[in-house]
Design a binder for these strands. Structure first.
Length: 555
RNA sequence: UGUCCCAUAGUAUAAUGGUAGUACGACAGAUUUUGGUUCUGUUUGUCUAGGUUCGAAUCCUGGUGGGACAACCA
């Protein structure tokens, strides 16, 4: 904890401000989501940043919904966003909405009209676009640009009163149609939308644009450090222009690079397509990068916070490897998750010299990393199931598991030796016959033998069943955003593999949704909310590191 | 043929004019009743050309490369 960490560029700015005595030593940030979709891990980076900065400097963070577009927004999203932020472990100082300020923002608009800095434009969207110019050519003034103040005031009032149809008129700032910055070419401040708003209902039929609401909302809340992502850099001059002309509290905007993770997509638009076109089962499908999906998959708030902390804050574009996220969840779950034995692809194993019908109750430690986790009872008998790939008929030299004549230890139990096996007509192994060494029992081994491999197992008569959902990366390629053509053509068709009837040891059968386990030698798993009293469902959060899989791949 | 932002190992991130370091990954080894964990070691980097300076990843200039900006979206 006392680890020496250098400051990121935002912390440096804040510390300079604090040293100067700016804002009376106050630090106030905000997290400003639009309630039109679910939060994803990119938002988590922003949440950890905004709330983390305030915590570090004894400040506060507002949660402010940027709800200026009634046609795309909904309270469903408001609720999920709040739940996700709380789950991540943060508390906001105030729950606010840009729509709380509609009256005040309207008055700001009137003030600008009176100063001759805003005008009502009757042009169509197409006409405005045509005069806008391009990044390399200046725009041209609208024919309505020089309307008188009185006329503008009256027209704007009529817009507000619902006297015009959607799209008939807009209110624009009078800045500079020749500016090299497109955002300064008389940006639209207000548009007409006869639409029901999730909070203000039908009170308004004109709504401010993001550019005329966001900065002013920050200013109204006296936000000291308004932190957003890089794509808003060119908006900053406009943000500052409005604050200057309105003579209101000067919030300052600072921009950082958004998070990109490999093997996934992060834009709300693309995630929405995956949901709506059925490529995943919903916003919280554990293959999605949304917060709700990561939660369902079994990631912990701490692992996500640590990840966000360690990826750093910078202004350069980045594509972070998921293996880093996986490292942090493994690191936590290795310390905290109880071990259990589960066989997902079973093959029968009979111990021929173990008495038929005899059952031994073995002691198994729950977590070798945490003695306080205690032990549990594990039933052992002469008929077991082991993992199909723990046996090879013709094993290569480095294979430490079971094969004809080979010995392995059954975890927590005995050393066994493979004597023979049966195959069906297709050549699949159906039963493996072994003999055990009675003196090799775990905890009291006097056999003097050491074996290279230890495998997991379940007792056939005692095993229960569960559905196990194995997840892999959603995309086949590193960076689906930078591939030719439709990003959806790079979806990994094997990203979900459902094992309907995995065999689980009895102790796992009573697990409850949200419980996390390590399946010995397999990975970390979390009980899914689809679980019913009749059916246990588990999601694989992440595999264990598997050096054998790597070795096997080498051939 | 505009404006703005950015450039350090495979990835990410430090070094704030003075020894280029850390994490993840990869590779090799030790330990191990999880081919897990843990431990040890190895590998790989300042985009480029000039300039300033005793000294440049850092400051300046030019180039190169990447990104953003032309929704009545945010």
């Amino acid at each position: 904890m006392s680890e020496e960490r250098s400051l990121n560029f935002l912390e440096q700015i804040i510390e300079e401000d604090l040293a100067k005595g700016a804002n009376g030593g106050r630090v106030h940030t905000r997290f400003p989501p639009e309630p039109n979709g679910y939060l994803h891990i990119g938002h988590a980076k922003s949440i950890c940043l905004n709330f983390g900065l305030a915590q570090k400097y004894n400040g506060q963070t507002n949660l402010r919904f940027d709800d200026t577009n009634p046609v795309t927004e909904d309270t469903e999203y408001v609720d999920s966003i709040k739940a996700d932020i709380k789950w991540l472990g943060f508390e906001w100082a105030n729950e606010l909405y840009a729509s709380d300020y509609f009256e005040q923002i309207y008055n700001f608009a009137v003030a600008l009209i009176k100063k001759g800095l805003a005008y009502v434009d009757d042009s169509t969207a197409e006409e405005i676009a045509a005069l806008k110019g391009t990044p390399t050519e200046p725009g041209k003034d609208s024919p309505y640009r020089n309307r008188g103040v009185e006329e503008n005031l009256q027209l704007f009032e009529k817009m507000k009163n619902g006297e015009f149809k959607d799209g008939a008129k807009v209110l624009r700032a009078k800045v500079d149609m020749a500016s090299p910055n497109m955002h300064m070419r008389d940006p639209i401040m207000y548009r007409i939308k006869h639409a029901h708003h999730h909070r203000t209902g039908d009170k308004w039929c004109i709504y401010p644009m993001y550019d005329f609401a966001h900065g002013q909302s920050d200013s109204i809340e006296h936000i000291t450090h308004s932190i957003c992502t890089l794509e808003f850099v060119p908006h900053r001059p406009l943000y500052d222009w409005f604050i200057e002309k309105l003579e209101i509290f000067p919030s300052h905007q600072y921009e950082f690079a958004r998070l990109n993770l490999n093997y996934t997509v992060m834009s709300k638009r693309k995630l929405k397509q995956l949901v709506e076109e059925g490529f995943v089962r919903g916003w919280d499908d554990p293959r999605m990068p949304t917060i709700s999906a990561l939660r369902r998959r079994g990631f912990t708030p701490a692992s996500i916070r640590t990840f966000c902390d360690r990826i750093g804050i910078q202004k350069r574009d980045n594509l972070i490897e998921v293996s880093l996220l996986e490292y942090f969840i493994r690191e936590e779950l290795n310390r905290t998750a109880n071990r259990v034995m589960v066989v997902t692809d079973p093959v029968k194993l009979v111990i021929t010299n173990y008495p038929e019908g005899q059952v031994e109750e073995l002691q198994a430690e729950n977590n070798p990393e945490d003695e306080s986790a205690g032990t549990r009872i594990l039933p052992f008998s002469n008929t077991l199931y082991i993992e199909r790939d723990d046996f090879m008929e013709n094993p290569p030299k480095k294979f430490f598991r079971l094969g004809p004549g080979n010995m392995v230890r059954l975890k927590y139990a005995y050393i066994i030796k493979c004597d023979s096996f049966d195959k069906d007509a297709d050549g699949n192994i159906t039963t493996i016959y072994c003999s055990y060494l009675p003196e090799s029992r775990s905890g009291g081994d006097s056999s003097g033998l050491t074996v290279k491999g230890t495998i997991h197992w379940v007792s056939a008569a005692h095993a229960a069943k569960a559905e196990v959902r194995l997840y892999d990366r959603l995309f086949k390629v590193d960076d689906p955003n930078n591939e030719e053509g439709d990003f959806k053509s790079y979806i990994n068709p094997d990203s979900l593999q459902v094992v309907e009837n995995a065999l689980i040891e009895p102790a796992l059968a009573s697990a409850k949704p949200g419980d996390r386990f390590q399946f010995l030698r397999k990975g970390y798993f979390c009980v899914d909310p689809d679980t019913t009293p009749e059916k246990l469902v588990l999601n694989r959060t992440v595999t264990l590191k598997d050096t054998w899989a790597k070795e096997a791949k080498k051939g």
